[in-house]
Design a protein around this nucleic acid. Structure first.
Length: 317
DNA sequence: AACGCTTACAACCGCATATCC
DNA sequence: CGGATATGCGGTTGTAAGCGT
């Protein structure tokens, strides 16, 4: 036995809410609360609306402390930074902006902010034949969470572009399914467990954990690079990556002895010396970094279409 | 004034996950 | 435990207002 049907679809009103409906809903909720049951609410409140519609109206418009009107520069900055970091997870972004709803932020982004930010990036640059189309920034649409591995089709696309480094000591683990954010965005040319300071490499290799047919991306080169060749913080960043790898291994149940094996392997972290890692904290992005990240993301969305994968592989081959 | 286009925002739809029976 | 519904989320659509011609 399941629950009773949600509502009589044929007998509910759709479309814009009238002031009278708003007043009824507001009055009822302020007096009686939602009772944790939106489906029953419209009937109790005397509304010919679906419970889902009532919930949306309350949360997005009638609820107290909802902010309407212009977004501040600070809010813009937070939205951009988070979008660049986690993509279109509007509910998470909304959680950082008191009084704003996910719907509000989504609309604001789609109609104004995106254009505002991208005003100086009207033209998408063609990615280098030697660079990953996802370089430096994992498009949010590739992942269902910040920790997800790329889908098999995307992974196979990666595999066609880049040298991969197999972590021999990891190959027996079959259940890796997530990647820590700092590793996902790690800007090293290869990942290391035995970090060696001062090593640099001019190439643009990526490294992945190769397990059966799937790949976990543990490295990534940036399409936005500092052109001055600086390597500020690269060593400490490498250690961050190493640290994250350790945490990751712990979280995925790799025991201590196996971690030691992995960390004693001979793979080294090597940075392309023109590359500068992006910040791990999305709120630390500079405006230029945000623009670049979003620009890359928007341009790369074309490539996310699985149907285009073969075409893309052919192009880069 | 009328028309068409653009913009902004509210609301809906479909899907994934949570919860209930 | 499994099936069915409830909830929450993100993408998309509908529509009214504003603006230019």
């Amino acid at each position: 036995m399941g629950r009773a049907p949600c509502c009589d679809k044929a007998n509910v009103k759709k479309g814009p809410w009238s002031p009278e409906e708003d007043a009824k809903l507001k009055e009822y909720i302020e007096k009686s609360g939602t009772g944790g049951n939106w489906i029953a609410l419209p009937q109790k409140a005397g509304l010919r609306r679906c419970g889902k519609s009532c919930r949306l109206r309350w949360l997005n418009y009638l609820r107290p402390n909802i902010k309407h009107g212009d977004f501040t520069d600070d809010e813009d900055s937070i939205i951009c930074s988070l979008f660049a970091s986690i993509g279109s997870r509007w509910s998470i972004i909304a959680a950082q902006l008191p009084g704003r709803t996910d719907n509000d932020i989504k609309n604001y982004w789609n109609t104004k902010l995106k254009k505002k930010i991208m005003g100086s990036h009207k033209k998408c640059h063609q990615p280098s034949p030697y660079a990953s189309p996802y370089s430096g920034f994992e498009p949010a649409s590739l992942t269902s969470s910040p920790f997800s591995a790329p889908s098999p089709s995307i992974s196979s696309a990666y595999h066609n572009y880049h040298t991969t480094t197999q972590f021999r000591s990891l190959s027996r683990y079959e259940t890796f399914s997530s990647t820590p954010p700092s590793l996902l965005n790690a800007n090293c040319s290869s990942i290391s467990t035995g970090f060696q300071e001062g090593q640099h490499m001019g190439g643009s290799m990526h490294s992945y954990l190769v397990q059966d047919s799937s790949l976990l991306r543990f490295g990534g080169e940036a399409s936005c690079s500092s052109s001055d060749g600086s390597s500020t913080n690269q060593n400490s960043y490498g250690k961050e990556v190493e640290h994250d790898l350790q945490n990751y291994l712990c979280s995925t149940g790799v025991d201590h002895e196996d971690q030691k094996i992995i960390f004693n392997s001979d793979v080294t972290i090597e940075y392309a010396d023109h590359q500068k890692p992006y910040s791990e904290n999305p709120l630390d992005y500079s405006l230029e970094e945000i623009k670049q990240l979003i620009s890359t993301n928007l341009c790369n969305n074309f490539f996310v279409d699985e149907n285009k994968t073969d075409e893309k592989v052919a192009y880069y081959n």
